[in-house]
Amino acid sequence: MKNFKLLLITVAFLVAACSENEEPADTNGSLKIEFDNVVGSANLQLNSTNQPYTNSLGETFNVTWLTYYISNIKLKRADGSYYIDPVVNDGSKGYYLIDEADAASQVLTLQNIPPGEYTELTFTVGVDANQVTQGAQVGVLDPAKGLFWSWNSGYIFFAIEGIAAASTQPENVFQYHVGGYKLISGNANLVNNLRDVTLSFNGDNPIVNGSKTPEVHLLMDVLKAFNGPGSTVTFTANASRHSPVACVDIANNVQAAFVVDHIH
């Protein structure tokens, strides 16, 4: 009798253990992506009174504003298929505005993701033409957020502003506003500054299920945005850039400025 009781408890325990582990593992889960903006090895601090950072050309600067749009997020599974973060026509879902001045904006939570192991993350820096041609949008795409170019319809994808001693602009400011998506047939000159970023998890693959919400920590390095495959940006030349063509190099740099730091 005693033995039987023990057996019963053991069985019950096993059943409970099984259902705890397996049942949620089959249900959809969430994944968090954190965008951590850094300057080389230093964490980015906005509005420092001095110019604590130095670009690859030895020019010092600080940052007063840094913000960018992330969209079209896709997660690749081990079997090569994709989970695609849903987009809603009015911009209310699928678009994210990362703002250095707003900590909450730097962590995205993707919900209702099918369970499984994911190997790679893809996203777009910017807001694609399809969305702009839909007219006035809501959410982070609300033009009242101040990132809409009124004179040249479209969003500023990536904006960074600050002060650099080397800038010849009034009060030594620099302003780089990267935007421009228009592709008009017959005009090859309109540049498209949308950039896709693909980051492998390098085998440290997050496993999503109902009981685990993995967190992917990304770094966006301002120094790389100023020095990368596009060009080496000097504050001495045109430190006030507000048009698509003027910012192609920075768009190319930004594409290479994101890395996966760690996953937990």
Binding site: V132, T133, G135, A136, P143, A144, G146, F148, S150, W151, N152, S153, K182
Partner: peptide, 25 residues
């Protein structure tokens, strides 16, 4: 032709410092 949708026309007028000089917000 800088504006490509009717919805965006008023934004240009409202924001333009030489026209309405106001912010959307």
């Amino acid at each position: 032709g800088g504006v490509n949708h009717v919805d965006f026309v008023p934004i240009a007028a409202i924001l333009n410092p030489l026209e309405m000089d106001e912010s959307l917000a």
